[in-house]
Amino acid sequence: MSEITARNEPVISKKIDKFFIGLANAFKFVKRFFQEVWFPPYEFKEILRQCYEIGYRSLPLISLTGFIVGIVFTNQSRPSLAEFGAASWLPSLISIAIIRAMGPLVTALIAAGKVGSSIGAEIGSMKVTEQIDAMEVSAINPFKYLVVTRTIATTLMIPILVLYTDFVALMGSFINVNQNELVSLSTFFVQVFEAVSFLDVFSSLIKSLVFGFTIGIVGCYKGYNSSNGTEGVGKAANASVVMSMFLIFIEELLALQIVNAIRYA
């Protein structure tokens, strides 16, 4: 893929030029993904392998984090609700918080750290050791094999991981509520389902798709454009995490505005 490069004489200043050139190259990269994703070869085997790596291998970390988030959030929310005699509303409050925001956000941030960095480092190391060039000279499309497959895998896996995190966090919350308020599992989940609407779950899943796409494409972009040997690989991994997290927060803010507009329309 031909990259846009800086002119010898900067148009505004070297830093500003570099920023806009980076932006233009990132857009070209995303555009190429959407151009190539529809056409064969589809590399199903590699997509499945990546789904396993990204989804299944993230389960232990996601489980632990989700469970702890559920317990801690419930514990911290109790005093405020108890002050108004509303401790029985805990399941409703926690479920709304987890499904609307905490589940997707916590999962996406953890995946950005774990998956985004690993994609950035893996593709970065393939780039600097000429493995990507080796694919190209063998008439294999490296973009398709490396970028499209990983981005599809993160886009598919993050929503599934979010649903799983939601469940684990709610179980953590239930254990805490059960210990303190002696609420049964069925009562807890009746309250949860009463509080949560279709829009909450649907918007959370759509948001997670976007988060997953962001983590995949940013990791691939940073890895694909890494240079300067092993130092560049480290930088690519680091930049993948930082950029993914930054974009996830921006997307979360935008999603909040859009969903609220729909909810209160």
């Binding site: 190391s125 000429e130 060039d133 000279v137 008439a139």
Partner: peptide, 20 residues
């Protein structure tokens, strides 16, 4: 170009074997 590339073998300096 890809059709032509199939007729050219390129042995890289660092071998460039796929690590995975």
């Amino acid at each position: 170009l890809n059709k032509l590339r199939l007729k050219i073998g390129f042995a890289f300096q660092a071998s460039a074997l796929y690590d995975s």
